[in-house]
Simulated scan of single mutants.
Amino acid sequence: MGLLRYSINVTLDGCCHHEAGLPPDEESMAYWTARIAEADALIYGRLTYEMMESAWRRPASGPWPDWMTARDIPFAESIDRAKKYVVSGTLDAVDWNAELLAGDLAAEIRRITRGSNGILAVGGVTLPLALADLGLIDEYEFLVHPVLAGRGPTLLSGLRERISLEVIDRREFPSGVIAQRYRPILVSE
């Protein structure tokens, strides 16, 4: 059975918006490239899918855009070729190596995890909140940046119930970014 891992960049004050001043350094970009490459598939909601596609899909013309640096291209190649699932009630179709999930969220995610023996990487803000509320996330992975955003959407805002976590891995980058992975602690009643 596949492992469902939610991964995201976050500021010290909990902001998880992609425009919160979190430019990746060399090491964190390499970290995310490796994470994307190791995943069996990526699972996004519509907004995250569309945002990632607009930035990281290989142009039909072939070459990568001029704005990409040498460190961006391996990430772009990994995400471009990755299998993707898109959760949406508004899209009629998806491409970019993607399958649309429009049915019951819990049933669809369970179907995907049963069909995998690897890591299924979930990104974004809204979809992970729904998955956390359903108790479907097996691991949480946060790259905590030494930034105070002061505004923007915050990590898992609106979570219905507290989820206790235990640290399973921690790594500090020279830039001050700290990568932390957690597993939910199952509490017996």
Results as ranks from 00 to 15, higher is better:
residue 94 V to W: 00
residue 147 V to W: 01
residue 158 G to I: 11
residue 110 R to A: 01
residue 95 D to M: 02
residue 21 G to F: 15
residue 123 G to Y: 01
residue 184 P to N: 12
residue 51 M to S: 05
residue 47 L to I: 15
residue 128 P to K: 12
residue 164 S to M: 08
residue 80 D to I: 03
residue 174 P to W: 05
residue 173 F to T: 00
residue 25 D to L: 13
residue 164 S to P: 11
residue 165 L to D: 05
residue 121 A to K: 13
residue 11 T to Y: 03
residue 153 P to Q: 00
residue 80 D to T: 01
residue 85 Y to I: 15
residue 6 Y to V: 02
residue 27 E to K: 11
residue 103 G to A: 11
residue 161 E to N: 09
residue 167 V to F: 00
residue 68 M to I: 07
residue 48 T to H: 07
residue 126 T to P: 10
residue 38 E to K: 15
residue 60 A to P: 02
residue 140 Y to R: 11
residue 149 A to Y: 02
residue 146 P to G: 08
residue 168 I to D: 06
residue 64 W to E: 01
residue 34 A to C: 05
residue 143 L to C: 08
residue 90 T to R: 13
residue 76 A to K: 02
residue 162 R to E: 15
residue 103 G to K: 09
residue 55 A to L: 06
residue 46 R to L: 15
residue 162 R to N: 13
residue 11 T to K: 00
residue 169 D to L: 03
residue 12 L to A: 10
residue 64 W to N: 04
residue 67 W to G: 03
residue 20 A to I: 10
residue 114 R to W: 05
residue 30 A to E: 02
residue 118 G to W: 08
residue 18 H to A: 11
residue 97 N to M: 11
residue 175 S to G: 05
residue 173 F to K: 02
residue 144 V to I: 12
residue 165 L to V: 15
residue 143 L to K: 03
residue 121 A to R: 14
residue 107 A to K: 09
residue 88 S to W: 06
residue 165 L to G: 04
residue 78 S to H: 13
residue 72 D to K: 10
residue 174 P to A: 09
residue 108 E to F: 03
residue 98 A to Y: 01
residue 68 M to D: 10
residue 66 D to V: 04
residue 121 A to G: 09
residue 36 I to T: 04
residue 17 H to G: 13
residue 172 E to V: 10
residue 5 R to V: 07
residue 153 P to C: 00
residue 30 A to M: 12
residue 1 M to D: 02
residue 84 K to A: 02
residue 124 G to E: 00
residue 37 A to S: 03
residue 88 S to G: 14
residue 136 L to E: 06
residue 119 I to W: 00
residue 168 I to E: 06
residue 95 D to Q: 03
residue 156 L to A: 00
residue 50 E to N: 07
residue 77 E to S: 05
